[in-house]
């Protein structure tokens, strides 16, 4: 008899599709948070599969700090057109008009205004009762205990001490007006699963993930992309370095890494060999130990 067993990637895919459908069936106004990154790209593909032959039946929300890479904006707009997405772009315009930027505010305050605040405002403005996010439990320790349906009170806050137990694949969607559920369909995927799936499924990604000669500012062990008028210190000069981005955030907070991985297989080889967890190059997580948990309690995704 032929063996009927799914590969681990197809098993993860089936689980995620089940989550997407469950949310669309049970919530009245779901939205998907779209960061333009690789995890978002995988989420889009899973959503396409869940509702094929229909189009993705919910809007896609991009919280734009306006400090993203130019290539990300291009990629986003092209993809939205191609897939016929209902793309909503939201910025904390008031903060931006008041001159919010990471160089003067520091990463924590900048993130609080341009990401966390902007996200909470956008969710409230849209009246969304459920929001899909691409977070994975393997990313960071505080995320290991996150539920797939993560309850947020009416201030958008997460209480790690008071989470609903989650058994089997039976999810509790009950909330009161003003409360929301953040849903994480990629909870059980690892970084390597994401890359393998992108390869197997031939999913388009922002080219910044692959290595290329790019003009960078090298400062100690940090390699910093030069966009958005990055304040260069006296004596510093950009140089061409062959780099790739391990994860894509704002240009200032995304450290690049030296790499020769020009293709996906090369990239995965590097990952297996280097074994550095991907958020490490994001400056934001290293401000204080456990800083991600603090941000999440405040409403960060």
């Amino acid at each position: 008899m032929e063996t009927r067993i799914l590969s681990h990637l197809r098993a993860l895919e089936a689980e995620s599709i089940h989550i997407f459908r469950e949310v669309v069936a049970e919530f009245s106004n779901p939205v998907m948070l779209y960061s333009v990154g690789k995890d978002s790209s995988v989420m889009l593909r899973l959503a396409q599969k869940a509702f094929h032959p229909a189009k993705i039946p919910f809007p896609v929300l991009h919280i734009d700090t306006s400090y993203k890479f130019e290539e990300m904006y291009e990629f986003r707009d092209n993809l939205a057109k191609e897939l016929g997405l209902n793309l909503i772009v939201h910025k904390n315009q008031a903060a931006l008009d008041a001159g919010a930027n990471p160089f003067d505010l520091g990463t924590q305050k900048c993130c609080a205004q341009l990401k966390t605040r902007a996200l909470l405002d956008a969710l409230e403005a849209g009246g969304y009762d459920a929001a899909f996010g691409g977070a994975r439990r393997d990313e960071e320790k505080s995320r290991a205990k996150e539920r797939i349906y993560s309850f947020r009170d009416k201030f958008g806050q997460w209480d790690p001490k008071n989470q609903r137990p989650e058994l089997w694949n039976v999810y509790n969607c009950k909330i009161e007006k003003g409360e929301t559920i953040r849903v994480f369909p990629l909870s059980n995927w690892t970084e390597l699963d994401i890359w393998r799936y992108i390869e197997v499924e031939n999913i388009p990604i922002v080219p910044l993930y692959l290595a290329k000669e790019r003009p960078m500012l090298v400062r100690g062990s940090s390699i910093i992309p030069l966009e958005h008028n990055y304040p260069v210190k006296e004596g510093e000069k950009p140089e061409m370095v062959k780099v790739r981005m391990r994860s894509l955030g704002c240009t200032y907070c995304t450290g690049a890494m030296r790499s020769d991985a020009e293709t996906l297989p090369q990239l995965m080889d590097e990952l297996v060999q280097f074994k550095r967890s991907e958020r490490e190059n994001r400056i934001i997580d290293h401000d204080t130990e456990g800083s991600m948990e603090i941000k999440k309690r405040e409403g960060y995704f």
Binding site: R137, D138, A144, K145, P160, S187, N188, T190, L192
Partner: peptide
């Protein structure tokens, strides 16, 4: 004090 999920391969 709570269920935490880990991944290995």
């Amino acid at each position: 004090i709570d269920v935490a999920y880990r991944y290995a391969a």
